[in-house]
Amino acid sequence: MAQQNHNMLEVSGLKKRFGDDIVLDGVDLTVSRGEVVVILGSSGCGKSTLLRCINGLESVDEGSIRIDGEEVAVGSRSLTRLRQKIGMVFQSYDLFPHKNILDNITLAPVKVQKRSKQEARAQAEQLLRRVGLWEKRKAYPRELSGGQKQRVAIVRALCLNPEIMLFDEVTAALDPEMVREVLDVMLELAQGGMTMLIVTHEMQFARAVADRIVFLDEGKVLENLPAEEFFENPRTQRAKDFLQTFEFKKQ
């Protein structure tokens, strides 16, 4: 394929302001095909905004975002097409409450990608089996637990056959005992070779899943290191302090 020489995602010089607040201050980031990148940083550092910009949910003030070589531009015609290459899962359960699980998943494949109902359904059922929720295919979102809803949300994004998946703190709103089932699905995806960009606060998971860690602070990329190296030997004091906050030691 001719596009193979592009990085899957290229962000360069990205700036984003909300009024006087500079949320992203010149972010550069590349994710190559099949790579799993985890973005870390304290809350308010701009992680979620970065993901929302990549998916064209927020406009960009300066800089550019390219998916597979193609520019993400808010309001452009190409955006809906481009978005089909990007799967996104949000923090809050964002399933459509008036549609059952199968309809939630097949809506976009049928209406947007114009695929046949049977074919979309078949893929949806196969994906649901993979995450262990096939029995729930006729249920409505309100009948599912938080963890189950997030797994469905992941399947819904996957069913568009995206080339990159974005995860925005998908376990942050879950009860602790449900976090694992969602992270396991993500881990399996990563092992299957999916390109992923993940925002999370689960340090152990980050370490297990990530090829590379990007550490964001006050809208800037402070570190961009292979995962092991970041956890063993962070370069900046900010990153050290950040990692420290997750450790509990007897004084």
């Binding site: 998916n55 978005r83 949000f90 964002d94 809506l107 947007v112 568009l160």
Partner: peptide, 21 residues
């Protein structure tokens, strides 16, 4: 909730489909 509109957008639904569906 605004998130409904955003998740529809992230699935590639245009404005009309988002409103209708």
């Amino acid at each position: 909730d605004k998130i409904q509109e955003e998740s529809a957008a992230s699935l590639g639904l245009n404005k009309w489909l988002t409103m209708k569906e």
